[in-house]
Design a protein around this nucleic acid. Structure first.
Lengths: 111, 111
DNA sequence: TAATATAATCGTATATTTGCGATATAAGAT
DNA sequence: ATCTTATATCGCAAATATACGATTATATTA
């Protein structure tokens, strides 16, 4: 009886949470940073910058890809990853919307 | 040997990840939304708006509080929760910093 | 003081995440 | 065809997260 009740929330709540979850690990933040720094698509160089095994990094990349934060295409013998700019922007807007509400109403903390 | 290697990342990466993690559940997004809507501090009314048991909600509130996203004070027999505006703002800046880097460099996707 | 109401905490079960080594896959080089 | 290089995937172990009911703590009310 200890189940995931996530379906009981609105789609927007679930989407925001899923996006946040994709960023909820320092390794994945670091990956996004690397992808942001090097404009051209990076592949296994990511592995070199992280204190993790290749298989673990590959898994994190997969999670980011599944969540839609990055795209990945096979480029010959190697793989090429990039930020999914559009999805990232959508999330940022969504987040700012929530944030804007807070700003208007809660500028002065109440407790 | 399946250990948390989180310490091996920078403090900023860890902080950003921790903040994202706090929002990485629809219930916690929903809680933030409720706190944003009602300007005055809300207590157990949160429980009524969620499809979860009281103890579970209390746990989510604790996580949000530990992560610094909300503050909570005991107000007589009930508890009063509020958005931690300052921390929220700090996170937003941090996030926008990462995001800004992306915006400048990656406006056109490469793959 | 006893009863009630609100909310936190404990104990527990289950599910998910994190991480690694080993293995598979696929393309390029020899 | 075989070797090498780059990545993805599988299988496993350990750690965390999610959820709930039961219990506890605290303050107000009767």
């Amino acid at each position: 009886m200890a189940f995931h009740k996530k379906e009981e929330f609105t789609q927007k709540e679930q989407d925001l949470a899923a996006f946040a979850k994709a960023m909820a690990h320092p390794a994945r933040i670091a990956i996004l940073k690397v992808l942001a720094q090097r404009n051209e698509c990076v592949c296994g160089e990511i592995v070199d910058t992280l204190p993790l095994a290749q298989s673990t990094v590959s898994q994190h990349l997969k999670e980011l890809k599944t969540a839609g934060l990055i795209t990945g295409t096979i480029d010959g013998p190697r793989s090429c990853y990039c930020i999914n700019w559009k999805a990232f922007s959508t999330f940022n807007n969504e987040f700012n919307f929530l944030f804007a509400n807070l700003k208007i109403k809660n500028e002065k903390a109440c407790c």
